[in-house]
Every structure is written in structure tokens, then in C-alpha cells.
């Protein structure tokens, strides 16, 4: 019995020794790379936004200029999201809004879009989707330019009945064989614009406090 106890203890001490060294190395790396990682992540997000809004069109730090948007059926979201506000000379240029199309062919389609104060779209991008490869996935900018047809569209120029695919009598092109996906995206964008119309003013008021997870 004593032998077993001693052996157990010895093994434990041994393993603890290795664990301490390992943890130490890990901690060191973590502290060394932490800042770079945070910077990289932010840059990636900026890069996405820059596809919707030319960086020259605003001069504020849009990563800091944030408005928290509560979950809303019109946006298809079920938890609060963060809208980024772009300003030039203090004047709002656009708001970058997240929305979800709940009725894609294979589940939800996550969208991000920039809306100018006049209700026209700066652009729309699909952030995440599970549409059939080769069929419904042309909504992804990496596969096709279809999503760019949203650029500049607004509800003031085009009424509700135009926000449909051509097959249903609307203004949007689609690929034969896959109409469910574009329908879902168009519907989601249209509803997000309606949400924007309803909440236009409050959307451009930044939160009092910078969002958490921001730089130190």
C-alpha cells in the first residue's frame, strides 16, 4: 500500500513539473502575441467594412463608434448586435448593420450591410451561410458578384414589389435552379432597410461607453 502511495506521489510530482514548464511557455507566448492578435482581428473587421464603405469616406474610428442594437425580428437577430457608425467631420456617413436571413435553403444566412443616412445601401456582404455549394452559394462574394447588385439600392427608389427576384416579378437577377437563397437574402435586406427607416435617428447615436473587448 505504501509503495503504491509513494509511486502515485512521485508520478504526480513529475507530471506537475512538466505542467508548470508547459504553462510557463504558454503564458509567455500568450503575453507576447496578445496585442498583435487583437490588432489583427480588428484589422480583419475593418477590411470587411472597407468593402462596404470606402475608408476615405469617413474619418472616425468606427471600431469605437458603436451603437448596440437590441435583438429585433425585422433584423432576424435573436441577440443584441453592434452597429458601427461611420462619420466624416462628425456627420454620420453610414451605419454598418448586422442582419440575418432566417429562411435560407439550408438555414440562416448572416449578412452585414452599410446603410447611408438617406436609406440607400452602401453594400451588402454575406458573412456566414450554409447554402448548397455550387447552387445557392453565389450570394458569397468569393463565388460571384451577385451580392453587389444591392449597391446603391434603396427603398425610396424601389418599392416593395421590386424587392423580389425577377422570376417573381422583381428587379433582382438569380441563378436558375436556386431561387430560395436569393429570395431569402433580398427579403432580409429589405426588412433591414425597413428597420433602418424606423430607427434611423437612434442608430446614429453612439453608445456612451466604448464596447467591451476594445483595446486597453
Amino acid at each position: 500500500m505504501k509503495r503504491i502511495a509513494r509511486s502515485s506521489l512521485q508520478t504526480a510530482v513529475n507530471l506537475v513539473f512538466f505542467a508548470i514548464i508547459g504553462t510557463a511557455i504558454l503564458s509567455a507566448t500568450y503575453y507576447l502575441t496578445r496585442d498583435t492578435i487583437a490588432a489583427t482581428v480588428e484589422q480583419a473587421k475593418l477590411k470587411l467594412v472597407s468593402q462596404l464603405l470606402p475608408p476615405s469616406s469617413y474619418d472616425n474610428d468606427i471600431m469605437q463608434d458603436i451603437h448596440t442594437v437590441a435583438a429585433d425580428e425585422m433584423l432576424g437577430t435573436d441577440e443584441a448586435t453592434q452597429a458601427h457608425i461611420a462619420r466624416r467631420d462628425g456627420q454620420p456617413v453610414a451605419v454598418v448593420l448586422e442582419a440575418v436571413a432566417p429562411d435560407g435553403y439550408s438555414g440562416k444566412i448572416a449578412l452585414i450591410m452599410a446603410i447611408h443616412p438617406d436609406g440607400s445601401l452602401g453594400g451588402v456582404r454575406v458573412v456566414n451561410h450554409n447554402e448548397t455549394p455550387g447552387l445557392g452559394d453565389y450570394i458569397d462574394i468569393a463565388k460571384h458578384d451577385w451580392i453587389k447588385t444591392f449597391d446603391g439600392r434603396s427603398r425610396t427608389l424601389f418599392k416593395d414589389e421590386m424587392w423580389k427576384v425577377r422570376k417573381d416579378g422583381g428587379m433582382f437577377e438569380y441563378m436558375a435552379g436556386a431561387t430560395v437563397t436569393p429570395r431569402a437574402v433580398i427579403k432580409a435586406v429589405n426588412r433591414a432597410l425597413q428597420y433602418f427607416e424606423a430607427h434611423r435617428d437612434e442608430l446614429f447615436i453612439a453608445d456612451a461607453q466604448p464596447a467591451k473587448g476594445a483595446r486597453k
Binding site: T132, P133, G134, L135, A176, G177, A178
Partner: peptide, 9 residues
């Protein structure tokens, strides 16, 4: 799987 578009026409 490979040619969903052609296969639905």
C-alpha cells in the same frame, strides 16, 4: 453534389 445547377434544370 458536383453540378447542382445543371442537375436541377
Amino acid at each position: 453534389i458536383s453540378f447542382p445547377q445543371e442537375m436541377t434544370q
